[in-house]
């Protein structure tokens, strides 16, 4: 696995990262099966080189960009972030990536754009989960433009100083640490700037349970389970639970984005 050059970041938490075996062995990536251990096996067939990303919509320089072009001149940073899954478990992951804002600024976002929409690759020959209509493929996610431009929001191409494992969303994925994990879309092939709130996969699947925003919020429960606490992966059989933090602990950075919004309605 290729080593990556990167610099450290002040945005990193000083919490202890999970073992790399936790991060590589316990994944939600339904394109490769619904079991947590399935992606680590099934994703290995995925071809990640060549890889191109279509950037379109309300941008100055639309086009199909090769991954190398997207990464050229980019300074990679290590961002050690908490990851909180909507299923009430969590990890700490040392991502390697760069701010999404860097890319959007290079592409030129037009003033009319209000949202960013993302799509994951569709390639059922290599992604066996896509042979079943478990979800409405392609996997889709989206952010409001101010969320997308926030310095905490990154495109990650690696973790633990190495290239991104396939089961974690190689070769390039989104990481939005104050939102539930499913917002951080994997294996991105399309980024579109739009003035409409984009359709997002889990919201399409069950709008009552999964909102567009899906910010980590211990005071707004999932209809079927509490979000007040979480199980930290790696804690073993007797690890118990810890309290879930507002905005997954990134409140001081991102609370301002939602000033005036009722987070029980905009869940």
């Amino acid at each position: 696995v290729a080593k990556l050059d990167y610099v450290k970041s002040d945005y990193s938490t000083d919490e202890e990262p999970n073992d790399i075996s936790d991060i590589r062995g316990y994944n939600n990536f339904y394109e490769f099966g619904t079991g947590k251990e399935e992606p680590s096996v099934n994703a290995q067939k995925l071809t990640v080189d060549p890889w191109s990303v279509k950037i379109d919509g309300m941008v100055d320089k639309p086009g199909d960009y090769d991954l190398a072009d997207i990464l050229s001149g980019v300074t990679l940073e290590e961002r050690i972030y908490r990851l909180r899954c909507v299923e009430a478990w969590s990890m700490v992951v040392p991502w390697i990536g760069f701010p999404l804002a860097d890319l959007l600024n290079r592409i030129g976002v037009q003033p009319s754009a209000k949202f960013v929409a993302f799509e994951t690759l569709v390639r059922p020959e290599e992604m066996i989960g896509q042979r079943y209509p478990i979800l409405d493929w392609p996997y889709r996610e989206g952010l409001r433009l101010d969320e997308a431009m926030h310095p905490l929001t990154i495109l990650a191409t690696g973790l633990y100083g190495e290239e991104m494992p396939k089961q974690n969303g190689a070769p390039i994925r989104l990481v939005v640490p104050w939102k539930y994990g499913f917002k951080s879309i994997k294996s991105i092939v399309r980024i579109s700037l739009t003035d409409q709130m984009p359709e997002t996969t889990w919201n399409m699947q069950n709008p009552r349970e999964y909102g567009f925003y899906s910010n980590v919020n211990p005071t707004v429960d999932h209809p079927r389970w509490s979000q007040a606490s979480e199980r930290r992966i790696g804690g073993g059989l007797f690890g118990g639970r810890q309290d879930t933090l507002m905005f997954n602990g990134y409140e001081e950075h991102v609370a301002g984005l939602y000033a005036g919004q009722d987070l029980t309605k905009d869940y």
Partner: peptide, 15 residues
């Protein structure tokens, strides 16, 4: 098995 790690990294859920 859960205590010894044979059920994976989330042994509580597995058990």
């Amino acid at each position: 098995q859960a205590a010894s790690g044979a059920l994976g990294v989330d042994p509580i859920k597995a058990l």
